[in-house]
Simulated assay, not measured.
Amino acid sequence: MTILCEPAARAGQLSPALGGEVRVVETLGEASRLLSTDPLESLVVVGSAMNLDEALTFTEALRFEQPSVGVVLLRDVVDVVVLTKALRSGVREVVARDDLASLVDACARSRALSAQVSVVPQPRFTEHRQGQVITVFAAKGGCGKTTLAVNLAAVLAAGGERSVCLVDLDLAFGDIGICLRAEPVRTIVHGLGMLGHVDAAGASSLLTNCRPGLSALLAPVEPGDAERVPAGLVTELLEVLPTMFDFVVVDTPSAFSEHVLAAMDASHHHVLLTTPDVPALKNLRVTLDMLDLLSYAHDIRSVVLNRSDAKVGLTMDDIDRVVRSDIRAHVPSSRDVPISVNKGNPIVLDQPKHPVSEAIARFAREHVLAEPAVVAAKSKRWFR
């Protein structure tokens, strides 16, 4: 069922394109009243006769009150200004009024997204406990950071006993969606209109349901969108998401930034990944020194050595001399890992008895689930 907000004289052309039962109203107030009486409604099409500012105000309120309801906005002229304002307010799609084919597609996508939002775990506020935030970081690209983050999240969510949210903070080149074959209909950039007042309902509207117990907050997909996401939005989301999930696993880019530091600040656990090669080990050493300078606690760090069995001329003694920190997990190399990535199915789920899967599961069991959660102290960013 769909609510079409448009004067009756103009609604006749649009109703057939929407399919199914369409309820036509002439004001946004009437649309609000219908929504309040029908919890199953999932789509409102706001016609081009509606005032733009009023339509955006309506959408912003709806996003927090009923995040599973999507709004598709029709305009006589679609330009950059309209698109920017609409997306910031939470409008799912903007379509030219006369483009009926695009309207049909937009409505189908919105309904599919509403179905996903409705199965995202609902906020579970507790007075005494919040979920843990785990940030996975490697200062050198190509170490397998995203693969580790995805598989760690999948292990924690396995069996459906725990709820997990995977956050893709590699805003420019994030691959979480690809690794999980998740359609990036909504991403973190759609939370821009919530800045300053992010709550659980708003955060839920940004999430993509990937598997039972596992949801994801995906990175932007459009060029230039990464620069639009402020670190303040990351801070707010990482305050709200732990009230909704048992674990929040954050995948990061391979460089320190305000966004990464915001995640580090919110974290109960820093998982620092490296591989047995000199550039990666050097960058890990720099990372550890940087975290010391910023006064992050040592006891929330875990160094993980990926491709630990690679024969590259370095011994474990060589690695220990550079790292000067306990290595809590040794993950072997295997061609099965990129195969699992290409399939869009984490290896810990696809092959739970695989040596890589067992290493990641052991790390989760011994150093995430078994250890008490202590949130990181705020960093001393005196260098800014």
Score class of each variant (00 low, 15 high):
Met1Leu: 06
Cys5Met: 09
Glu6Pro: 01
Arg23Cys: 10
Gly29Lys: 10
Gly29Arg: 12
Gly29His: 11
Ser36Gly: 12
Ser36Gln: 15
Thr37Cys: 09
Pro39Tyr: 02
Val44Phe: 09
Val46Asp: 09
Val46Phe: 13
Ser48Glu: 09
Asn51Tyr: 06
Asn51His: 08
Thr57Tyr: 14
Thr57Gln: 14
Leu62Ser: 03
Glu65Arg: 15
Val69Trp: 09
Asp76Arg: 13
Asp79Tyr: 03
Val81Leu: 10
Lys85His: 15
Leu87Phe: 05
Arg92Phe: 13
Glu93Asn: 11
Val94Thr: 06
Val94Arg: 05
Val95Gln: 06
Val95Lys: 00
Arg97Thr: 15
Asp105Cys: 07
Arg111Phe: 15
Ser118Tyr: 07
Val119Thr: 09
Val119His: 02
Pro123Lys: 05
Arg124Val: 09
Arg124Asp: 13
Gln132Ala: 13
Val133Met: 06
Thr135Leu: 03
Val136Arg: 03
Gly141Pro: 09
Cys143Asn: 06
Gly144Val: 00
Gly144Arg: 11
Gly144Tyr: 12
Lys145Gln: 13
Val150Leu: 05
Asn151Ile: 10
Asn151Tyr: 03
Ala154Tyr: 05
Leu156Thr: 02
Ala158His: 08
Val164Ile: 01
Val164Ala: 08
Leu169Ser: 02
Asp170Trp: 10
Ala172Ser: 10
Ile176Leu: 13
Cys179Lys: 07
Pro184Gly: 11
Gly191Pro: 01
Met194Pro: 08
Leu195Thr: 08
Val198Gly: 04
Gly202Ala: 11
Leu206His: 07
Cys210Asn: 01
Cys210His: 01
Leu214Met: 08
Leu218Ile: 02
Leu218Gln: 04
Pro220Ile: 05
Val221Lys: 12
Glu222Pro: 12
Pro230Lys: 02
Ala231Asp: 10
Leu233Met: 02
Thr235Lys: 15
Glu236Ile: 00
Val240Tyr: 01
Pro242Glu: 09
Thr243Lys: 12
Phe247Lys: 04
Val248Arg: 08
Val248Ser: 12
Val249Asn: 03
Glu258Arg: 15
His259Gly: 08
Leu261Tyr: 12
Ala263Arg: 04
His268Leu: 04
Leu272Phe: 12
Leu272Thr: 14
Thr274Pro: 07
Pro279Tyr: 02
Arg285Tyr: 00
Ala297Lys: 12
His298Lys: 10
His298Thr: 12
Ser302Asn: 11
Arg307Asn: 04
Arg307Phe: 02
Gly313Asn: 11
Thr315Phe: 07
Met316Asp: 15
Val322Lys: 14
Arg324Pro: 11
Ser325Arg: 11
Ser325Tyr: 07
Ala329Gly: 11
Ser334Asp: 06
Arg335Cys: 13
Val337Ile: 13
Val337Leu: 15
Ser340Arg: 10
Ser340Ala: 15
Gly344His: 08
Pro346Ser: 02
Asp350His: 06
His354Asn: 05
Pro355Thr: 15
Glu358Phe: 02
Ala359Arg: 03
Ile360Tyr: 00
Arg362Gly: 04
Ala364Gln: 02
Ala373Arg: 14
Lys378Phe: 14
